[in-house]
């Protein structure tokens, strides 16, 4: 009998795919995703700030302004507490206003900490206002 014919007689072995380590691989992948995933939801306030040109257009005499000078708050040049600011913003009924009438100018001095700025920004946004940041002109 030739070699070829002997080969034809060979029976194919029934091969099995080794799946024992599949679960190990899968659990390793789970551990990777557990480490790489951030499940913590952050809390934030949303503020759609107009860009420079729009903000410049919004600066009219009648536009309400909030001025932060350190820890002090001024609303239309009158010193107010934070609660009074919230009340005044609510009185403006900003959600029912249209376009430019919803704009509130926000100005601050150099010593204003971010915490005060954030609180004011949050109060204006929550009352339905559009915050326009006032940029100081650079001294020549």
């Amino acid at each position: 009998m030739s070699r070829k014919s002997r080969g034809q007689e060979k029976k194919h072995r029934s091969g099995t795919i080794p799946t024992d380590s599949f679960s190990d691989i899968a659990f390793l992948l789970i551990i990777y995703f557990l480490v790489a995933t951030s499940l913590v939801k952050v809390k934030s306030i949303t503020a759609d700030l107009p860009s420079g040109e729009k903000a410049a257009q919004a600066q009219t005499e009648k536009t309400p302004s909030v001025n932060l000078r350190g820890a002090e708050i001024f609303f239309n040049e009158k010193q107010v507490s934070f609660d009074e600011l919230e009340a005044r913003l609510a009185a403006l009924d900003l959600p029912s206003q249209e376009g430019a009438k919803r704009v509130i100018l926000l100005e601050s001095t150099r010593d204003t900490p971010y915490s005060s700025y954030f609180q004011t920004l949050a109060a204006i946004s929550a009352s339905g206002g559009v915050v326009a940041l006032v940029q100081e002109e650079e001294k020549k």
Partner: peptide, 23 residues
């Protein structure tokens, strides 16, 4: 202080982003 955070907020606004300030 303002000098450090306001230019960044303005940069986000200028680029067309809507600010999500975390607190």
């Amino acid at each position: 202080p303002k000098d450090q955070f306001e230019p960044v907020i303005k940069a986000i606004a200028e680029a067309g982003g809507i600010l999500e300030a975390v607190g």
